[in-house]
Design a binder for these strands. Sequence first.
DNA 1: CACTCGTGGCA
DNA 2: TTGCCAAGAGT
Length: 312
Amino acid sequence: MPHILHAIPRERSVTVHPEDVLSWFATAERDLPWRAGDVTPWQILVSEFMLQQTPVARVLPIWPDWVARWPTPSATAAASQADVLRAWGKLGYPRRAKRLHECAGVIARDFADVVPDDVELLQQLPGVGSYTARAVACFAYRRPVPVVDTNVRRVVARAVHGQADAGPASAKRDHADVSALLPGDDQAARFSAALMELGALVCTARSPRCDGCPLRSTCRWRLAGSPPPVGPKRPAQRYAGTDRQVRGRLLDVLRDTDSAVSRADLDLAWPVDPVQRERALASLLGDGLVEQLADGRFALPGQDRNDSTASR
DNA sequence: CACTCGTGGCA
DNA sequence: TTGCCAAGAGT
């Protein structure tokens, strides 16, 4: 008997008991609007697009208005890209808004306006990667697939591997890690939501609240004395002065007006460095987030331009 | 694999 | 103040 036990590698012994996480979740779950019972798969997909690299608090004021205005893929696809970009506002990474618009068109045209429930099909949609495909399959269709986001990877890194933070993402290993924890029955989907919630509320990147953690008695990282992260940390990404900031400024000008704007108007948005400004504008045109009209002015793609200032 | 791509809040 | 970070995807 002891012989068998000793043959089990430490890494693989159980440190996460699903029932502990689920009972914690029952009391700690946030009342997020996209978790309500009458929310459709499409509306859940919209929330996942918005939540890609964007905090919940910033999505909260945008999502309800968005899904009320465009409740289905076909309704979304029928909107102009300009209206979509304006409704997206300052959520950031506006290419997501464009991909969401494209995604709506594909679902409306190729899937009869019904969001697929299969991970492989979902992942072929524009803007839908491994995480989002699994999140929709799980949260919208209750499929028992592993859902691995940055929160889950951090919880697993700590509780299972005893490391302060997760290393670089590795789809195969990450999915295997979570699959090993998933309760095999109809609790799997709820468990995935609970694991994400635990990472978001308790097992946070900075100053985790271990006192309130349902895993505190078995967490390998805690049992090891909460050692600091090992290895080199990636240099923090800058924003001030980057092309991304310039793109943001240019797009901000175009979102704020119903009419097309001249190149001189765009110059005002980033006067200091014309070379960088032109590079940013070119990249926005290349991304299809901005278009240039025949008269040389610029506008969000597909917007109505019946403005009286148009030169004839 | 490494890099780009927004934005704002918080320690 | 500045650095860190937030339900990633695409190239």
